[in-house]
Computed example of a mutant assay.
Amino acid sequence: MAVRARTALRAIFGLQLGIALVLLGRDFAIVLPSLRLPSFAPAPDVPITPGDQTRRFDPAKSPPRQTGRPGEAMPANADMPSRLFFEAREGGGTVIYGQIKEGDFTRFSDWLEDQSPAPETLWLNSPGGSVSDALDIGRLIRERGITTAMDADGQCLSACPYILMGGAERHITKGAWVGVHQHYYGKSVALPAFLAVEDIQRSQAEVVTYLDTMGIDPLIMRHSLATPPNEIYILLDEELTGYNVATELSDKEE
């Protein structure tokens, strides 16, 4: 009887230990995506020069904007709104600004349906956010034949360039800051390794297909794939035109 009791206690203890390990593993899996090595790249306010185009980047905050390239420092800029906003721009067109959140494609689509006539040009100023929403917004912009543009003090980072690339024409004023990096797949969800890799590869395939559809050189991916999520690679003027991100690069705003 005593042997049976000891055996039962060991089984119960083993079960409890197993549950504790599972819970500990789950908590670690939730925390792990947010654990990254610190970036040793220069701060965003350090001037960009050819060959030195990677800067530290916090996707939750809007980095400073630059006024010229290369070699000019970037002045401080207030944080962006937590999601996209659409408002009339002085001089014509519409400004789209703020972070790109899940559901912003639906908000943008609904907003666009209410515009009569539809805006001819959308001016972008966003630190990025949801890749899937950015791709859907870009597809709708191309479908409607709308031009995308950037002012000299504008920024379009992370997922935002996919919206920019959706423009039937893409007018960028010199000094605008267009930057790319790796997509962040760090939602707090524990996935088996093979499923996580499959999800990442599927998302990258979707992006490559999008680039091809929009007439953008897929070689631009070499910069995004080589730049971690807590850093941003800033495209030079010759890269903006070379990869066909910009169909027009001008010294003055329209």
Rank of each mutant, 00 (worst) to 15 (best):
L122S: 06
A60F: 14
L112H: 06
I141L: 10
D110L: 13
Y184G: 00
S188I: 06
Y97A: 07
D114N: 13
L112R: 05
D110R: 14
A134T: 00
R170N: 09
G128T: 01
G14H: 11
Y210M: 05
P59H: 06
A190W: 15
S62L: 08
L219V: 02
C156T: 01
P192Y: 12
L23T: 11
W111K: 05
R65H: 15
L164R: 04
Q66T: 08
G138E: 02
S130C: 12
S158L: 10
P119T: 03
V245R: 03
A205K: 10
E239V: 08
P42L: 08
S188L: 11
H181Y: 04
A88Q: 11
V207P: 03
P59K: 02
V245E: 06
R36D: 01
F40W: 01
G145A: 13
E169I: 01
M150F: 08
R202M: 15
P64W: 03
L35F: 12
A8Y: 14
E206Y: 03
T173F: 13
R36M: 14
N125Y: 10
D199T: 10
M150G: 05
D52S: 11
G98T: 02
E238D: 15
P50A: 09
T94C: 04
T209E: 15
H183K: 04
C156A: 04
Y233F: 15
D251K: 03
L122Y: 12
D79A: 05
W177G: 00
R65M: 02
L122K: 07
L236W: 04
L225S: 06
L236H: 05
T247I: 00
M165H: 05
T227A: 08
Q201G: 05
R56G: 01
S158D: 12
T106Y: 08
V95P: 00
R107P: 00
D104R: 02
A2D: 13
P229W: 10
A226M: 09
D212G: 07
I146A: 14
G18D: 11
P44R: 02
L225T: 06
A5C: 06
C156K: 02
A149F: 03
M165D: 13
E72T: 14
P47C: 12
D58N: 15
I216G: 11
P64S: 11
I48E: 01
K252I: 01
D79R: 00
P117M: 02
D45V: 08
A226F: 07
G166M: 06
E87D: 12
Q66V: 07
D52L: 08
N230M: 11
T241P: 00
F57C: 02
E206I: 03
P218L: 09
F57H: 01
G71E: 08
L225F: 12
P117R: 11
L164V: 03
T106N: 13
